[in-house]
Amino acid sequence: MGNYTLKVKKINDDAILPNYAHEGDAGLDLYSVEELILHSGECKLVKTGIKIELPKNTEAQVRPRSGLALKHTITLLNTPGTIDEGYRGEVGVIMINHGKGDFKVEKGMKIAQLVVKPVWKVNVEEVIELTDSDRGEGGFGSTGLR
């Protein structure tokens, strides 16, 4: 793998640049620039105050943070959310509160992870038949529960 650069533009003075918490982490932490309350069962788009320019032939996936999920039952809708290479708008995070009580999102709080991945472009070809496989058409629990 080569060395790739994620270009980030702050559009809010309170924005924090995405960063890796530990050596070897797959995801960059994303931070809120807003303070708001997520009521039980509610979802909101939370702003990060940044715009990004991805390296060529990549996408960014916005993923939940396991600590928020375990400790507060907070996760993300549309997960993983996909940011396409050509998108230049503000990065937003769709958070949802599955807990029984309110959850306070604070300014500067780590709210999600951003994972940059390569994208393979494929040619689309219509065919009459597909090749057989061991699995065939089995899906949606076809391998059993154990």
Rank of each mutant, 00 (worst) to 15 (best):
L30F: 08
V115N: 07
P80N: 09
L114W: 07
K51V: 02
S142A: 13
T5W: 02
K47N: 11
H39R: 13
V115E: 07
V119T: 12
K71I: 01
A26S: 15
V119P: 00
A26G: 09
K44T: 01
A26M: 14
C43H: 15
S32V: 08
D132Q: 12
P55M: 06
G27L: 00
G138S: 10
N57C: 04
L36G: 00
V124W: 13
D29S: 07
I52C: 05
Y31T: 03
Y20K: 14
D29L: 04
N57R: 13
N12F: 02
K100C: 05
S32A: 13
C43Y: 11
K104W: 03
I111M: 12
N97P: 02
V93H: 03
W120V: 14
P55I: 06
Y4P: 00
K10P: 01
K117P: 00
Q61L: 13
E23T: 15
K47G: 06
E34L: 01
V93G: 05
E23I: 11
G99Y: 01
A69V: 08
L54M: 06
L130T: 11
E59S: 10
S66C: 03
W120M: 14
G136A: 04
R65D: 01
N3T: 05
N97K: 03
D102N: 15
E106D: 14
T58N: 14
Y87L: 07
